[in-house]
Design a protein around this nucleic acid. Structure first.
Lengths: 176, 176
DNA sequence: GCTAACCTTTACGTCAACGGCAAGGTTGTG
DNA sequence: CACAACCTTGCCGTTGACGTAAAGGTTAGC
């Protein structure tokens, strides 16, 4: 069932997809994907005879990560480029990893990738802690409002408003 | 002791600042602050005789929050506008809160503010959980690389990749 | 009351991040 | 082999988020 043709020893060959399929799956436009390539954020695994871009699962993963960095983490494409390191280096490592059979060199390459991933994690953690701080502050404001409201409910007269406001503006006294 | 002039019953009057001071304190430019006003994100508490913008502590807080939403949370100014609700409503509530002496109406206003703050918190929490998910995935990648590296160290030949390639190898297959 | 250092509005310029053509080439299905 | 539905590069257009002058008016220190 999982092995359609056990006679051939080749790997599963995970199928290359065209730009439209990938775009649809990720919720991007083809233009956007080409633009990211133009910026050096990723390069498709291959090209067809007629020069069509062909993406493998790894490319799709990278694209999904890029989209996350853009939408969820709010990074600019320039920042994302710095975080991912440019595609040229990725291509070099790809090739070097394949061509060498020296385990030491392979380890060096993997270590390199590891260092980058750890930098990414740190960057994301940093971002998250700043977000957490913002949430804390918002919760402080909420607490403050709750207290204030409780005060009003208890019939406290003119509630000590810390910061007074001189310039009145808005004369409209909507009574009711 | 704490009251320099007990004869006047006015509040402390916490000093209004000009746009340049505020910008410097927050690390923004004056242009940016004016732009935010143009978009309806905030309006200074007052104006001087010569039409200079004058910001109070509350305005500065709002600006700081806006900056946080922009930089830390990565929201667009349009999204921030929706989250904060437009300045017109803020001004109306401000005025209404001051002019009314009816505790019930005041409570309504505070409740309203409370609801907004809670929506903000929810939005931020949502953003943070998505960020957390990204971090988890990055950590998975890290773990994967670590395992892979351990494998190499132990002298395992070409580790059976079902999909996860280290940096991304374009399925070289048995080629070479 | 002069002057430097701020401020005002108005308006055009810029860079990022795409959208949307045009003019052609490729794929795969009947 | 015809033809629709993809794809290619090239290039101009647009929107968001400001930068940057221009042509004045205002404030504060001396």
């Amino acid at each position: 069932m999982s092995q359609p043709d056990p006679s051939t020893a080749t790997v599963v060959e995970p199928r290359l997809r065209r730009i439209h399929e990938v775009a649809a799956e990720l919720g991007l436009t083809t233009r956007t994907i080409r633009y990211y390539e133009e910026l050096g954020l990723l390069e498709p695994a291959g090209r067809s005879g007629g020069d069509y871009r062909q993406y493998d699962a790894d490319d799709v993963e990278r694209l999904r990560f890029i989209k996350g960095l853009r939408d969820d983490a709010g990074f600019s494409l320039a920042e994302i480029g710095r975080l991912l390191e440019d595609e040229a280096a990725r291509e070099r490592n790809r090739a070097r990893y394949r061509t060498t059979s020296d385990a030491t060199e392979r380890r060096a390459i993997v270590d390199d990738a590891l260092a980058r991933v750890e930098r990414q994690i740190e960057t994301l953690r940093d971002k998250m802690s700043r977000l957490a701080a913002m949430i804390d502050e918002a919760e402080d404001r909420r607490t403050h409002l709750l207290i204030h409201n409780a005060g009003l409910e208890a019939g406290v007269p003119p509630a000590p408003h810390k910061h007074g406001r001189p310039v009145g503006t808005a004369v409209a006294g909507t009574d009711r």
